[in-house]
Design a protein around this nucleic acid. Structure first.
Length: 210
DNA sequence: ACCATGATCCGCT
DNA sequence: GCGGATCATGGTT
């Protein structure tokens, strides 16, 4: 058993972890935690190094115009997964936050791979049609919201999943105090774009962009 | 029915 | 740095 695996054993965070803080607090606190996918055949894990917050009164948020079929998971209790399909190709993964029916969430934008990197690469190869994947570096495996979803095989099937249970959960990993956290404008949005709701670990080489 | 949009990625210049 | 791929989703006709 390798070091990261033992560090993650029995460290899954419970539902209270997600509900007892604001969305902005959660977006920062998730940095250094591990995203773990565990089923009967495999375990994949990555350290969360980059997040973005989406609030209820936020024009950039999918929830801004109210509840629809697509975004309904955003209105569940904190700690549920919100997975959406985008650009005709990709899935992105969020952690629902704050009060139920409010519609707030944290987008997970980048991971530092810890366990199961070969399986992640296989998932990337099978999902994306790129032919240069063999040259991919570890830094490029999960350095973007759709990339990490591909690596973990996260699809709509996990939309609405409870993140304090298998097969997908968040585990304690690194101590948040050990990091300097940088906040910047969010990536890829046009509305309400001036707020510094993107957070990442300073000097970490696995983030999506500088 | 039709249309515009998009919390992205990738390859090319 | 730029544009194409590609289609579910939601809003409008």
């Amino acid at each position: 058993m390798n070091q990261p695996y033992s560090k993650l054993l029995n460290k899954a965070l419970d539902s209270e972890y997600f509900s007892n803080k604001t969305t902005l607090e959660l977006a920062k606190d998730l940095l250094g935690k591990a995203l773990v996918l565990k089923d009967t055949t495999k375990i994949l894990a990555g350290k969360i190094v980059e997040t973005e917050a989406y609030l209820f009164d936020d024009e950039a948020s999918h929830s801004f115009k109210g509840k629809t079929f697509r975004n309904s998971s955003m209105f569940l209790n904190a700690g549920h997964a919100y997975v959406y399909y985008i650009y005709g190709n990709y899935f992105c993964f969020n952690v629902v936050s704050a009060n139920a029916n409010l519609g707030e969430a944290v987008l997970i934008r980048a991971l530092e791979p810890l366990i199961g990197t070969n399986e992640m690469l296989t998932n990337r190869i099978n999902t994306s049609k790129s032919k240069n994947l063999k040259e991919f570096k570890l830094e490029q495996l999960c350095n973007g919201p759709a990339k990490l979803a591909m690596s973990f095989g996260i699809t709509k099937k996990l939309d609405g999943h409870k993140l304090w249970q298998d097969p997908l959960f968040i585990a304690d990993y690194d101590n948040i105090e050990a990091y300097n956290i940088i906040s910047t404008k969010r990536v890829g949005i046009t509305k309400n774009a001036d707020l510094n709701y993107r957070f990442y670990i300073k000097n970490n080489s696995f983030i999506s962009k500088t």
